[in-house]
Amino acid sequence: MNTPLLAFRNVRFGYGANGKAVFGELTLEIAAGTVTAILGPNGAGKTTLLHLALGWLKPQGGQITLRDRPLADYGRGELGRLIGLVPQSEHNPFEYSLLEYVLLGRAPYLKPLEMPGPEDVRIARDALARVGLAGWEGRSIARLSGGERQLVLIARALTQGPRLLLLDEPTSHLDLGNKTRLLALLRALVGQSVTIVLTTHEPEVAAGLATHLVLMRGGQVLETGPLPDTFRSDRLSATYGVPVEVAQVYGRQVVLWG
């Protein structure tokens, strides 16, 4: 348990050859079986961090390792079987059925010209059932609400059988009911030995789900650590640059601001 699942060591990254550096010297460890929430203002580098963890963006200095092996040494298919991504929003102008869409998650298990078979269909149906959309296989993705669409994206990532699930602002655009259901689903996944890293603009989501926090501002990690210690008024105020107060209400942590 001592080697982290994912580790960033002195990672340097900027967009473009002479672009502004997003990260100077980023060091971060994510242990297996944890839920890490990345909090920070807009432009802090949260999504960039996820894309680096995915292997899509390559660090310009330092090293990212997955299970102690450099991310750059993994093949694309291999990464696809270990890491799933749930993007912030996905615009697809074509009207797929849910089953067709979720089936795309099987790609890392198929050869480049191979098409999904009955076993893949079974796994995709299971994934839809796991997110509570059993029986919805034939519905059109274009006719879903924002919350339902988020569930479909998670189902697609689940068909990859990932050990690490990256979610980019999974609760934005969701109403309270959908938010509650989504958090319950993510908690259940952690019980099934999936490690979760998510970005969010809602400190309460982090408080309700995460075991660890990463507080970022302007490409710098201000603070990282297990939740009760990091989820404090002074730390959050420093992160967002405005006065923030953490309060206890009925045993739960809420954030007061403005």
Partner: peptide
């Protein structure tokens, strides 16, 4: 179908 997805998402699917 996979190539219709955004770059990072398509990459995440191998």
């Amino acid at each position: 179908n996979l190539l219709a997805l955004e770059d990072a998402t398509a990459f995440s699917l191998g």
